[in-house]
Amino acid sequence: MASSLSFNTLAVILTLTLAVCVTRTLGGIVCENLDHDSCAFAVSSPGKRCVLEKQVRRSGEEPYTCRQSGIEAGGLRDYIETDQCVESCGVERRTLGIASDALLEPRFAQQLCSSKCYGSCPNIVDLYFNLAAGEGVFLPKLCEAGREDTRRGMAEIRSSGMAAPGPMIHPVKFIVAPAMSPY
């Protein structure tokens, strides 16, 4: 009797495990199947970030397409960002690609560093943390600097530690040619 009970228990565990695996395989997020309103800030089943792109066709039509990028999402899988986080962090669903340029905008950086976003939306924060790191900036330091002095924090990103010299200004000399007589 004890062996039949353990066999039944093992059969139930095996069935549940198989059901979870099949559901995960068949029901996971595939970026190419997402519409343009849920693509940006989504993460596919293999844990890659989805990215919204616009392709120009020969007809001139510019349809949106969602593709899986090669960027890992820090252990997150099968995830579509919530509307609350999109709003709290100041990002847009129809963002084409993702770039660190947004970090240069003081208003965006302020929203990203807010407790509503930074403390509650790890997917978006992880994405911009990695983008900032690619620019040589530590996002927590940027957020701290932003609380102290927004301009200084933005200057840190722009200069990446060393500002390029400005253009040299030289006086311009104009040479006036004497008027030519038509006769």
Rank of each mutant, 00 (worst) to 15 (best):
M1Y: 01
M1D: 13
M1F: 00
S3F: 15
L5A: 02
T9Y: 01
A11Q: 07
T15C: 11
A19S: 14
T23G: 05
T25I: 08
G27N: 03
G27T: 09
G28F: 02
E32V: 12
A40L: 02
F41I: 03
V43S: 05
V43Y: 01
G47R: 01
R49Q: 13
V56H: 11
R58P: 05
S59P: 09
E61H: 13
E61M: 06
E62L: 10
P63N: 07
C66T: 11
R67V: 15
Q68C: 09
I71C: 08
G74R: 08
L76A: 08
R77M: 05
D78C: 00
E81T: 09
E81V: 06
T82A: 09
D83F: 02
D83V: 00
D83Q: 13
Q84M: 01
C85E: 09
E87W: 03
C89D: 13
E92C: 00
R93N: 08
L96C: 02
G97P: 14
A99E: 14
D101H: 06
A102F: 03
L104C: 02
P106L: 12
A109C: 00
Q110V: 10
Q110R: 12
Q111Y: 05
Q111M: 09
S114W: 11
S115W: 05
S115E: 10
K116H: 14
K116M: 02
K116L: 00
Y118D: 04
P122C: 00
P122R: 05
I124A: 04
V125C: 06
V125T: 07
D126L: 07
N130C: 01
L139C: 04
C143V: 07
E144C: 06
E144V: 02
R147Y: 10
E148H: 13
T150W: 15
R152L: 01
G153I: 02
M154C: 03
A155V: 12
E156D: 15
M162F: 07
M162K: 14
A164H: 00
M168K: 13
I169E: 07
H170P: 12
P171M: 05
P171Q: 10
V172S: 03
V172L: 13
V172C: 03
K173T: 14
K173W: 14
V176P: 06
V176M: 06
V176F: 08
A179P: 11
M180D: 14
M180I: 11
